[in-house]
Amino acid sequence: MLINHPLLGPRDASEFTYLGDANLLNRPDWQGENAVEAFHDYLYLRDNPAGLHRELWFHEQGDRSWLVVTRNTLTHEILGVEMARDVARNNKRFEGDAQ
């Protein structure tokens, strides 16, 4: 597989370490209501879609970027690759706007 790194261009998948669902970016608020339940769901409940999946890959043998890769789990087609840090920042901004 090839992952089109936003900074480095296409890189072989063997350079990366896979983590899983990109929902791991959305770590709950430790002071929120039912924080233990929220963390439980965050940590243990994942979707396992047949189709599009946003997931985290770490360029461990490369520039050490965490990436959010949108992959079709049925075909391995990769539809998008973003810097996880950018995604995380946008998520936070969005949360901020919502509040």
């Binding site: 370490t17 983590l19 791991l24 970016l25 770590r27 985290l56 770490f58 461990e60 050490r64 970027s65 965490w66 810097m83 996880a84 840090r85 950018d86 995380a88 920042r89 936070k92």
Partner: peptide, 18 residues
């Protein structure tokens, strides 16, 4: 050593990006 570093980068980039 490798795992801790990976997890620290995860925390830095994905959890506390600012």
């Amino acid at each position: 050593a490798v795992t801790v570093y990976r997890n620290m980068e995860f925390a830095r980039q994905c959890l506390f990006p600012d």
